[in-house]
C-alpha cells in the first residue's frame, strides 16, 4: 500500500542505495533497515532530541524527517563517531564526567554537542545549556553532560593547539 522510492545517501561514510517506503522516517530507516540502532526514539514528536543525528553536518531530528528527505545527504550517526573503536574526546569526556546513565538520550546529545563544539569551540556553561535545551535527559540532571561538554571543548582545543 505504501508508495516506495529509491534513496541514495551516505551514512557514516558508506554509500547506500535502497528502495524504501516513502513514509519511513529517517530514524526507522537507520534503526531497522541499516541496523544502526544507536539512534534512539524517545518521543517521535520532535521534542526530546534522542533521535538527533547529523545531516550534512547539521543536527536533525530523525524522527521528524523522512528517509527519502535525506536523499543525496551525508548522515552521521553515533556509530560513526569513534574511529577504530577508539572514543572521541567528546565521548571520552562522557566517561570521565559521568555524562550518561542509561545512555538512551546519549547518542542525540553527542550529535548536538558535536555541532556545538564545531560552532563554538570555547563555549560557556550557559552556551552548553542553551544548546542542550533541545535534548531531554531524565537520568543525569544534565550536570554530568554539561561537565563533559566543557571538558571536551577544552581537550579538543588543547589537542588542536598541540598539533
Amino acid at each position: 500500500m505504501a508508495e516506495r522510492m529509491l534513496l541514495m545517501l551516505s551514512v557514516n561514510g558508506t554509500e547506500i542505495t535502497r528502495e524504501v517506503p516513502v513514509r519511513l522516517t529517517l530514524a526507522d530507516f537507520l534503526r531497522h533497515e541499516l541496523a544502526l540502532t544507536g539512534t534512539h526514539l524517545g518521543c517521535e514528536h520532535g521534542v526530546c532530541g534522542a533521535c538527533t543525528v547529523l545531516v550534512d553536518g547539521r543536527t536533525a531530528r530523525s524522527c521528524l524527517m523522512l528517509a527519502v528527505q535525506a536523499d543525496g545527504a551525508a548522515v552521521q550517526t553515533v556509530e560513526g563517531m569513534a574511529v577504530d573503536g577508539k572514543l572521541t574526546p567528546l565521548q571520552q569526556a562522557f566517561v570521565e564526567h559521568h555524562g550518561l546513565q542509561c545512555g538512551f538520550c546519549t547518542p542525540g546529545v553527542l550529535a548536538t554537542l558535536t555541532e556545538l563544539l564545531e560552532t563554538i569551540p570555547d563555549p560557556s556553561e550557559a552556551d552548553v545549556r542553551e544548546w542542550l535545551s533541545g535534548n531531554i535527559c531524565r537520568c543525569t540532571g544534565y550536570q554530568g553532560i554539561v561537565d563533559a561538554a566543557l571538558a571536551a571543548a577544552k581537550a579538543i582545543r588543547e589537542g588542536a593547539a598541540g598539533e
Binding site: R31, L36, Q91, V95, E96, G103, T106
Partner: peptide
C-alpha cells in the same frame, strides 16, 4: 571507578529491547 557500561553506550552499541530483531 569509571563505569563499565559507558563505552558501548557511547558508541551506539547498547542493546535495548527495540534493538533486538
Amino acid at each position: 571507578v569509571k563505569r563499565v557500561e559507558d563505552p558501548a553506550l557511547l558508541k551506539g552499541e547498547g542493546r535495548f529491547v527495540d534493538d533486538i530483531h
